Amino acid sequence: MTVLFDLFGVVACHQSEEGGDRLVRVAGAPAPAFWEAYWARRPSYDRADVSASEYWRRVGEDLGLRFDDHRISALVEADIASWDAVDDTMVALVGELAASGRRIGLLSNIPEELALYYEEHHSWLRDFHVRAFSCRIGHVKPEPEAYRWCQEALGVEPERVLFVDDRRENVRGAQETGMRAHLFTTAARLREEFARWDADAST
């Protein structure tokens, strides 16, 4: 079994409420309108179709605001900080799998600035044999090409890959490309899935 992990919501935590509040303050916009623009524009930023400056300028335009370079730098910094927390239990599990010789990969919808931050500050990323960041592979989940890119990079048939994500649409996307998939809730339940997989493989 090769395991392909999502990052946020599985190994790392979702965007923090405190961090999100800080972003809204930096933007100087009403929260509902800010989040609508933030998420509507996010896929193109995660895919690197636009730069950080272009992304934030377009978010500002949607809000009827003009973000200058200084404001954009502050928004990028606040955005990165809002995604920085990790799940230590899952980080330990990743390390355990890597130490056992299990081949593991990472597939994340993530912009370049955040990817660089994680590479510089989270050494456990080196445990992954393949790191598929959307900003570098040009595809975002649940696009089929994102999963196929990982399958080819991992060098295994899709049915030998267990994809782990906390979002149903991403789990379905993996299944549609032939991967086995697990909707993540807890580390304990994920371990149970590993045990089922190993039991199936031994029969």
Rank of each mutant, 00 (worst) to 15 (best):
V171Q: 09
S51H: 09
P158T: 10
L190F: 15
R66S: 13
L107T: 10
G138C: 09
F34C: 11
D84L: 04
V140P: 00
R103C: 08
E152I: 01
P30L: 12
A29N: 04
E17C: 01
H14E: 14
L7G: 03
L63D: 13
V10D: 01
S108C: 07
V86G: 03
I72M: 07
E18W: 03
A187T: 14
L190I: 11
R57Q: 08
E159I: 03
E18I: 08
D200A: 12
R47V: 00
A81S: 10
S100A: 15
G138N: 12
P158V: 07
G95Y: 08
A29W: 05
A195Y: 05
R57C: 00
D88I: 12
F184W: 01
T177N: 02
F194N: 06
D166K: 12
Y55P: 00
D21S: 11
S16V: 08
L106A: 06
E18M: 06
R22Y: 05
Y38C: 01
E61H: 14
Y147G: 02
S123C: 07
G138M: 05
G173R: 07
L63T: 12
D46P: 02
I80E: 09
G28R: 09
V10M: 00
E145S: 11
H139R: 09
V91R: 14
P43M: 01
E152D: 13
G95Q: 09
E169Q: 12
T185I: 05
H121L: 03
P30Y: 12
A78M: 06
T186I: 08
A81R: 13
A40E: 14
L75I: 12
L75S: 09
R168I: 14
V76E: 12
P111G: 05
T185A: 15
V26R: 05
E120W: 02
G64K: 13
D127L: 09
A115V: 04
E119T: 06
H14N: 15
R160N: 10
R189A: 13
D88G: 09
V91P: 06
P142I: 04
D87K: 07
D88P: 11
V59L: 08
L63S: 11
W124G: 06
T186K: 10
F133I: 03
V140L: 04
F8W: 05
G178S: 10
R196S: 11
E152P: 01
V76M: 02
